[in-house]
Design a protein around this nucleic acid. Structure first.
Lengths: 350, 350
DNA sequence: ATTTAGCACTGTTAGTAATTGAGTGCTAAA
DNA sequence: TTTAGCACTCAATTACTAACAGTGCTAAAT
């Protein structure tokens, strides 16, 4: 009996929390007891709401900017709110349509697919969208091409199953027959192997092969280096959108975001670990780890090529954002990307 | 006699203009008559300076933010000032050293050279640096590689004399012998030809060649398209620096800059025409053409590969900047880039 | 004919005070 | 347990003032 009463209380309290956050997201102003009473139909008086809000404040979910102001959510409040959005709200049908249309132009290389995706995320959220390209190291090699440019320059072109193309020029003089031989050898041995694996294996294989030439061994070493130096790519769009957010008087966050835009490696650091998660993840105000995001929230999810997750995508926006919609957006887009990648993978299995 | 008097007057007036601008650049505050008298040694009283400033205002070089404030330069004032900086101030020796050191890691592909250059420009100016890659259409082809990926996919890899590497996947099924033949044919006919020229000539040549196969003709068409679709690249760094400028309370400019960062084509539009100039060009406050730059100034110059100018580089900063130093920086960096490109060109002529 | 000193004038800035109002917490009654 | 009532608090707005920096003009000085 007592238990039940407590549960009801708890549920009501959380309903109040939701209402406050919802209202705050909508208006951007601290919400007071009376505005809550009007907009949402608790059958409770402002006074009761006030005491509930006071409790929520004691619990750490709400704060006061000052004594005579309404409540605003703390990071913990947002967190509780987001966690309770278990069921992802479906995107409206028209919105789904828009997304699909955006993808209309078929893209053969993964780079353009992802860059497009980042633009879509940014365009539909009106915040900053980003897509981390397939974790380079996990990509499987489809083709290695060695192109003799001059007597002492070789252009290495790498193509992966996912459609990633990377190239690099290296300086070495090598006999062109040897080059041809090495190329076929590498392709036969490395196709289907992940880059990470390949980089290690190249050396081993070439040694096994008893390379007649020291040159070949040297070149193999270079190629291994090329593979190692492949950077994870990240696409980012709409950083300027954040500056357009009305209650963003604060240059600092804007600068941080622009900095992230330029130092992508830092962003990779922040979201790279989200590769493991399969659901939607919301990081509120940097949540301790990253001071530069203290006024921003990051919504991420991973995407996969059918077998395993290969990258991360999402949006960066203000802490005060419509989490439900944005989570749905991110979720939806990732599903669609999955679909495309699956198709691209199938196309290449011939 | 009268003429002389007028000249003296004029010279003095322009000295006052310079002093005002210089002081304003230094302090950021409107400059009044008495601060001018103290800091610079005109042997004139504040009253005289006042009347001179009033004349300069009538001439359109200075304004008043309000009645009881000092003067600040108008765009025309900056313009007159910049135009009179005929002699480029040499960069301090240490600074030259810094730049050279930054370039230490030799780069074989032009992409990394230019990206590095953009970072240097941004780093040393503390504003936004940019480098427009060699006008793609003017690049001369060094090598065309056609790589068969699967029975119906060809990866086209283009390499230019300046070290630009571009690739694109195209969907077509073609006999591999034909592919080989076409590749050698294209290379023999197009090497040394500019991209622009090449795109047109491919079709003609293949027709002349009496291609046995319809496929070959079709592929040639695709390749021509690939060449046409090569975009001018632009590297940009330090956009966030502009947000750090203390007297930049104005979000609008910051947003515009971020927008430029994302829509590089717009930037290309703005600075693309500077390819023709050989000296340093300063564009103050967008100077009519581009509203988005109304609170910013752009300093550009072109760089060359030894024969002709192939790209544009420079910085974007606030209107109130140390034009002399920044012009020297841009000038210096462009000279150094010239040197590198010349060397790269020589290396490839073997 | 210039230059300069003197002075009245003007608009910004900073500081103080008064007022308003939204919203709170507490208490006592329903 | 809920609610009405009330005193209280603090930010935000407004109004007013004083200080100040700098101007433009005029008349005297060079």
């Amino acid at each position: 009996m007592r238990q039940v009463a407590e549960n009801i209380l708890k549920e009501r309290k959380s309903r109040v929390l939701h209402a406050v956050i919802h209202e705050y997201i909508k208006t951007g102003k601290p919400v007071g007891s009376s505005s809550l009473e009007k907009g949402y139909n608790f059958n409770l008086s402002p006074a009761t709401l006030r005491s509930l809000m006071a409790e929520l404040e004691k619990d750490g979910f709400l704060t006061h900017p000052h004594t005579s102001a309404g409540r605003i959510p703390t990071d913990a409040g947002y967190r509780a709110y987001v966690d309770s959005l278990i069921e992802l709200q479906r995107l409206a049908v028209e919105e789904e349509e828009i997304i699909k249309k955006e993808y209309e132009k078929k893209t053969k290389e993964i780079d353009s697919l992802l860059s497009q995706t980042s633009k879509i995320l940014s365009g539909l959220s009106n915040y900053t969208g980003f897509v981390m390209a397939p974790k380079a190291k996990n990509n499987e090699i489809r083709n290695i091409e060695l192109i003799q440019i001059s007597s002492e320059q070789i252009l290495v072109v790498l193509l992966t199953k996912t459609g990633l193309v990377r190239h690099k020029m290296i300086n070495i003089s090598i006999d062109s027959d040897d080059l041809y031989e090495l190329k076929h050898f590498l392709n036969s041995k490395l196709r289907g192997i992940s880059l990470e694996e390949a980089s290690k294996r190249i050396i081993v294989e070439v040694q096994k092969y008893q390379s007649k030439q020291q040159d070949m061994f040297k070149l193999a070493g270079y190629i291994s280096n090329v593979i190692d130096s492949i950077q994870d790519d990240i696409y980012m769009n709409g950083a300027s959108n954040v500056l357009a957010i009305p209650d963003f008087n604060d240059f600092e966050s804007a600068r941080c975001l622009m900095n992230l835009n330029e130092h992508k490696d830092r962003l990779i650091e922040i979201i790279g670990k989200d590769l493991d998660i399969s659901s939607i993840k919301v990081q509120i105000g940097g949540e301790g780890n990253s001071a530069e995001l203290k006024d921003l929230s990051v919504i991420t999810t991973s995407y996969s090529d059918g077998n395993k997750t290969i990258g991360v995508l999402g949006i960066i926006g203000p802490k005060r954002m419509e989490y439900d919609k944005m989570m749905a957006l991110v979720n939806s887009v990732s599903k669609i990307v999955n679909g495309f990648l699956l198709k691209m993978g199938e196309d290449s299995d011939d």
